[in-house]
Computed example of a mutant assay.
Amino acid sequence: MRTLTTRLAFSTLVLLSVLPGITRAELAKINLIMTATLVTDSCEVSADSQSIVVNMGSWAAKQFTGAGQSVTPTRFVINLENCTNLKKGVSLTFNGIADATDPTLLAISEQGAAQNIAIAILDQDRTQIPLGQTIAVTGLGSSSQSASMVFFSQYRATAARVIPGKANADATFTLSYE
């Protein structure tokens, strides 16, 4: 089995305060920064997926009314191309610093950041992909040369009260070839 690891950088996420006078803030940029070392029997991460910015929208902290509460997910796509000699297929695993309350979510990763909030990664059916869980890449067989992998990112409250602030997280994904 061969692996390819790529880094995703979720950044510049700010939750709106419920304080008077603050009406909106930038919540929503996720940079997906991808680098790779290519090996035999693999795929390349396409040029259009090398640096992806996902606009997560603007959300008020008061929109999270309890633990587990989430907001509308935001779509992002990772494209693979030049796939060669794939005998069995490709699998993908997302990893990153896990949230202390819910280790299936990405932890917010900087000082002064929002609290009681984390980021969920969802598959194309909007089912959560827990960190560290391997999934099969669909639409890519031995004769396929490319695949578009659709995912979603979503804020999720981890406690009853979300405290506003920046909400950045970093993740990596690993492609495994069998």
Rank of each mutant, 00 (worst) to 15 (best):
I117H: 06
L4D: 08
L8E: 10
M1Y: 07
I135Q: 13
I163G: 10
L80M: 05
S42K: 02
D123W: 04
S42R: 03
K166L: 14
V39Y: 13
T35F: 09
R126S: 11
F76T: 03
N82Y: 10
L175T: 04
A61V: 07
T101E: 10
L86K: 06
M34I: 11
V71N: 14
M149G: 00
T23Q: 06
S144H: 07
R24A: 12
E178F: 11
L15D: 06
N95G: 09
G66Q: 07
K62P: 00
T72M: 11
R126H: 07
L13V: 13
S148T: 08
K29A: 12
M56K: 09
T127S: 13
C43Y: 01
Q63W: 13
T35I: 08
D48N: 11
T93K: 11
L86Y: 04
S176W: 01
L175V: 00
R161V: 14
V71R: 11
T101S: 11
A136P: 09
D41I: 01
A159F: 03
A9V: 14
G66I: 00
A36L: 09
A167E: 04
A147L: 03
T104M: 02
T172Y: 09
I52M: 08
T158L: 01
V90T: 06
S91V: 07
I117N: 02
D123R: 01
V137N: 05
G165H: 04
T5S: 12
L8T: 10
Q111A: 15
I108N: 05
N116M: 00
C43N: 00
A100H: 06
V39F: 11
D102T: 07
Q124C: 07
S42G: 15
L131E: 08
Q133T: 15
C83F: 05
G132Y: 01
A107Y: 02
I33H: 12
G132N: 07
K166A: 15
T101K: 12
I33Q: 13
N116C: 02
F173A: 06
S148L: 04
D102Q: 05
T3C: 08
L27A: 13
A136D: 14
T23H: 08
S17E: 10
A114T: 05
L19D: 15
Q50V: 11
I33L: 13
Q63P: 00
I117V: 09
W59I: 06
A120I: 05
S11D: 14
L8V: 12
L106F: 03
T134G: 03
E178V: 10
L122F: 05
Q115G: 12
A60H: 11
G139I: 00
A171W: 03
I129Y: 04
S143W: 10
D48P: 01
L38I: 10
S51K: 14
I30L: 15
V77K: 05
A171G: 08
K87Q: 12
A171Y: 04
S143V: 11
S146F: 11
R75E: 15
D123V: 03
S70P: 05
V53E: 13
S46Y: 00
F10C: 10
T158N: 01
Q63L: 10
A157K: 04
I52F: 08
E110D: 15
G66K: 08
I129R: 02
A100D: 12
R2L: 09
T174M: 05
L8Q: 12
G68N: 03
P20T: 04
F76N: 02
I52S: 08
E26R: 13
G141C: 06
T101Q: 11
A100V: 09
N95R: 10
